[in-house]
Design a protein around this nucleic acid. Structure first.
Lengths: 216, 216
DNA sequence: CTTGCAAGTCACCGGTCGGTGACATACATG
DNA sequence: CATGTATGTCACCGACCGGTGACTTGCAAG
């Protein structure tokens, strides 16, 4: 595709290492996004990239090297933190950031596969991928928070982590199963109920102090 | 183990189909709990059960048949709904049920593996397993709820589903990765913060009506 | 005891996996 | 042009996978 074919028939290929490497990385992204990590292997990657598997080993060592290179790739994770306009109080800003992230996650099959696989296998490159993602997420949250401060008397990072975990699980689950806990995640009605529940939780969790703190 | 060895040396084995079947199912549970679904195959299961793989095929058809039989097994999923004493209001009862379920899930590696694998692969027997689990969970929640009713003006099933999703994700993630969203899930402090955040969210979500409802 | 059959054992098949050595080709350098 | 080296291609290996046919063995009915 990107490499102009030569004149000869069989053993052509343009002898461009950089191009081959980027073709391999692009194929890895495509492969993970389409088939996930279960079938992510040397042979499949070589076939997807249209090159011999020995080149993958020569350039990246092994599949973990490919993942590491993928994680180090600039712009691999969701890029623009400027999606959310910092307005309103802490809760409103967090809710806005949350919804923007939810949309981005729903639209990114590769990120979904990575998050799913992290729950199954604990490998070093996956850990690196997650750390890179976590760092990007942190700076994103910082930018979105701006000068707003969380209400006193609550553990905002923990609350945000819980709601983020719920978003991850529900998003990942929608890809394989329709229902969860009696709700139908596939229908627009079910998704609307989930969204409303998230809004409700954000609003209530970060509401102005009203009652006693349920600490023990 | 359960089958008394005969006198002869090699081709003994007691010719007891029922015992062999239960040995296979027990081996499947052990295998899934230890290694997960990634290495769950005919050969591994036969080795774990100490029988020939052809017997697995003869008795269960294929691996999916084994999973189906596992799901139909009585007491495969968490059994006793009487853990939670139905007391207090709706929110308190749900929070109590929630914590009991959290402890049970944390102590059940097989259930964790099933929940993880459901996010990766969408196979029919896994769907059946999930449906059985969902039904057990539903009756459990019904029993725990008792005669309490949710406060009006909110979608209690959706809110419960969100918090349950968060519990699932955080529990599954703790098995492979230490941190999430800046929190350290491995330390008792991090787990205490998560628990406190859950309590906070339950208390706030189901608190007596205080302010405006954040519906859109 | 003889016979029939299910239970259990073994050996083998084709396919795919990751991995490797040997080789062909293109490009830059002398 | 000659040469070295990196790039790319190919064939093959051992290991494991699910799957299957052929066999042996124990049990029970006749």
């Amino acid at each position: 595709m990107t490499v102009p074919k030569s004149t000869k028939a069989r053993p052509v290929r343009a002898k461009d290492r950089a191009a081959t490497e980027s073709r391999i990385l692009a194929a890895a992204r495509r492969l993970i996004g389409r088939d996930g990590f279960a079938g992510f292997g040397l042979n499949a990657l070589a076939a997807e990239a249209g090159c011999d598997k020995v080149l993958i080993r020569r350039y990246f060592g092994d599949l973990d090297g490919v993942l590491t290179a993928l994680g180090g790739d600039v712009g691999f994770w969701i890029g623009d933190p400027d999606v959310v306009a910092p307005e309103g109080g802490y809760g409103a800003r967090m809710a806005g950031l949350f919804e923007a992230y939810a949309d981005a996650l729903a639209a990114d099959p590769v990120l979904q596969r990575v998050l799913s696989w992290e729950l199954v296998e604990a490998s070093v490159p996956l850990r690196r991928l997650d750390e890179a993602r976590g760092r990007a997420m942190g700076t994103w949250m910082q930018a979105a928070k701006g000068d707003a401060v969380a209400p006193p008397g609550l553990d905002a990072p923990a609350i945000n982590a819980v709601l983020l975990a719920a978003l991850h699980y529900l998003t990942l689950r929608t890809r394989t199963l329709e229902g969860f806990a009696g709700l139908d995640l596939a229908t627009p009605e079910g998704q609307a109920r989930i969204r409303a529940a998230f809004r409700w939780l954000f609003a209530r969790a970060y509401a102005e102090p009203t009652g006693g703190e349920p600490d023990a």
